[in-house]
Design a protein around this nucleic acid. Structure first.
Lengths: 228, 228
DNA sequence: TCCTTAAAGCGACGTTTGTTGTGTTAGCAT
DNA sequence: ATGCTAACACAACAAACGTCGCTTTAAGGA
């Protein structure tokens, strides 16, 4: 959850497929358009994406202009404009590359502990300086491309966090019909709300507090699939 | 809560003091600087703020450029740049003007009902088209000025919502040491998270669901001031 | 090796954004 | 009324943004 402390921030993305195809919806004739993902194209992509990550880490979102990325990557401006359209497209590509990591939620033995650990990761990610996560969220308001990518990223994270709920159900901590997504949102949303929207200074007790109250409500059946 | 359905969207702001002073921190000498809030200055401010509201309603955040505002207000570009700095400054001024309304949370008779009503207002505000609330949030990522104004606005809303918690305590629904702010954040954050950050389509059951689970946890003492 | 053609390079262009210096208008006090 | 000057208008400017047509390079199949 949260474009989290991906220990390796964003860099090395071994994913070879360029985003060109993902960018264009079902558009090109599958036969006529013989793409060419080899050598130079891949190299340029790697250079550009590295430049994006570096600039983002160094100067935040403000430093992230198409011109700066192109200059840093040693690539011509028009190349970036053609392949990624704008800054949002660049971030979308970086995000998709970062989403394929092997992240898994911690297993502490009980639900509240798992949710607390999760929230602590989110807190760390949102408190990191420079604020990369904020930069990505900010970008999602400027570019539909980035917004979709961020949504995919988070959906993937929530999917993986479903394991936390499953374990709790198996242990008998939760009703079997618990809606995992709603529970996870209830547990994590306060952190995003306070830190991202309300801009409150980080409260070290908030992760555990939010985890406890969500777990408590869940145990009482507040996230039951039937009556909600 | 939420830059909500302020029945009168933003227009007529009877607040006379121009933002010039609020914009500049303690900077000018209190004696030498004799401000001049009369006639023309006030008229220009009104024209510009009206233009901001109109453009925001018509075309959303993308339509809100300094040039467009100046043109619509029949005022020169440099005037806007000098007094409001950028789009964020404009929105901050509009927000401050809108914050002074007489909004109060509904009183339905019980805690869950009050929170549900509150959440339904938030849902309505976030689902409104064009998305004015999103525009304000987006602006808060671009401009510190707008971010501070939005924070003030929300703080004011949470302050007023404290009445909901007080009533519940008086009725015996909640422990006396309940932390109002944490409870309110827990109840409302899921809506913002789903609609603003995750961009999930509006779920008409979410307001009641989030209200129920927060109220349940609160009744169990999960938001107690002492042990949290 | 050679040919085709994606994909990148290149430079020029028009637009938008934001700044600065200077002149003009009009509050407000006398 | 009259003078002072805050606040606005105007114009010229620089920098950034984004697009376009054309040329060059090199990937990948024959």
């Amino acid at each position: 959850m949260s474009p989290p402390p991906p220990a390796t921030p964003f860099s090395e993305s071994p994913s070879p497929p360029p985003s060109a195809e993902a960018a264009d919806p079902p558009e090109t004739q599958p036969t006529s358009a013989r793409r060419r993902p080899g050598g130079r194209t891949a190299r340029v992509r790697e250079q550009v994406l590295d430049a994006v990550s570096a600039l983002l880490v160094e100067g935040g979102y403000d430093a992230l202009t198409v011109d700066a990325v192109a200059a840093r990557a040693g690539v011509h401006r028009t190349t970036v404009y053609r392949r990624w359209k704008d800054v949002g497209g660049l971030l979308a590509d970086v995000l998709d590359a970062a989403g394929g990591d092997g992240w898994r939620p911690a297993d502490t033995g009980d639900l509240t502990g798992d949710l607390t650990a999760l929230n602590q990761e989110i807190l760390a990610g949102l408190s990191a300086r420079p604020p990369i996560t904020e930069a990505l969220i900010a970008a999602s308001f400027r570019s539909d491309e980035a917004a979709r990518a961020l949504r995919r990223f988070w959906d993937d994270r929530y999917e993986r966090c479903g394991a936390v709920v499953e374990r709790a159900v198996r242990r008998g901590e939760l009703p079997a019909d618990t809606d995992a997504r709603r529970l996870l949102v209830a547990a994590t949303a306060p952190l995003y709300h306070e830190l991202v929207l309300l801009r409150t200074p980080p409260d070290p007790e908030l992760p555990a507090q939010a985890a406890r109250s969500a777990a408590l409500a869940a145990a009482a059946g507040a996230f039951g699939g039937t009556r909600g």
